[in-house]
């Protein structure tokens, strides 16, 4: 073994000397792939305008929204997770729920904080629960999926506010009930489509129950919201 190594060392040394000295095609092979890779793969985010960066991120968020609205078995939500979308959805939901009780001062604060805390702590609890049950999903992937799947409920909140603007009777309640229950079902279905694969097959029901409870509480908050 030692002899072989000693034999190899001078061989390599000689090769490198030769290539540096007068081997032109080797030089070409080294330089060309470096140029092409830097041109194609690494789009330098330092040089591009800020608008491009923001637009690209927004486009990624928008694509994930589409994934939630049309939940097929894709791993796009899981592969490159981000928390911008969940933050956006959570803040807009909390603001819309807040709007009703701005005028009465002691009621406004808790409402926003309550929604915020329910969304984030609820998803953290669901994530920890799925980890405890033996799920093979990373912490932030699960947070990302649960946050993005609030999208139908946020849309339902928007519809509810529009309905409440026009009328507030028994018909509007029925309309809101239908909208909220449909979006609740949609949220639960979408999140289970993404999350169920990471659970052991015999325990899916156990992991899905807290998800169901989480969206149920949010949906119920939206349904009982009334601008006073």
């Amino acid at each position: 073994m030692a002899d072989v190594e000693e034999l190899n060392k001078p061989l390599f040394a000689g090769l490198s000397d030769v290539s540096i000295a007068d081997d032109i095609p080797v030089e070409g092979q080294i330089t060309v792939p470096v140029n092409s890779s830097s041109a194609n793969d690494e789009i330098s985010t330092l040089d591009e305008p800020v608008k491009d960066t923001i637009l690209r991120d927004l486009k990624a968020v928008g694509q994930k929204f589409v994934h939630v609205l049309y939940p097929k078995k894709s791993s796009a939500l899981l592969r490159d997770w981000d928390l911008w979308g969940p933050l956006l959805l959570c803040v807009s939901l909390a603001l819309m729920l807040q709007g009703g009780s701005v005028d009465s001062k002691d009621d406004g604060g808790p409402q926003f904080a309550e929604v915020f805390v329910i969304v984030w702590f609820g998803s953290i609890i669901i994530t920890v629960n799925s980890k405890l049950l033996g799920g093979t999903i990373s912490f932030f992937q699960s947070l990302c999926v649960l946050g993005y799947c609030i999208l139908p409920l946020t849309a339902a909140m928007l519809v509810c506010r529009l309905v409440l603007l026009s009328s507030s009777g028994i018909t509007s309640f029925i309309v809101r009930l239908v909208v909220v229950s449909a979006s609740f079902g949609w949220s639960t279905f979408a999140s289970t489509a993404f999350l169920a694969d990471s659970q052991p097959p015999n325990r899916k029901a156990l992991a899905i129950y807290p998800v169901f409870l989480f969206y149920f509480v949010i949906g119920w908050m939206i349904l009982t919201f009334s601008p006073s």
């Binding site: 009621d107 309550e114 805390v117 629960n129 049950l133 807290p210 409870l213 509480v217 009982t224």
Partner: peptide, 30 residues
């Protein structure tokens, strides 16, 4: 697992009860 989920379910039910009864809690959230 069962106890934890039951406690969280009870939290949800209590929230429901507080909201429908119109309870307002000062210096704290429901």
């Amino acid at each position: 697992y069962g106890p934890m989920m039951l406690v969280f379910t009870m939290v949800a039910i209590l929230l429901h009860g507080m909201k429908t009864s119109g309870t307002v809690i000062r210096e704290g959230t429901l």
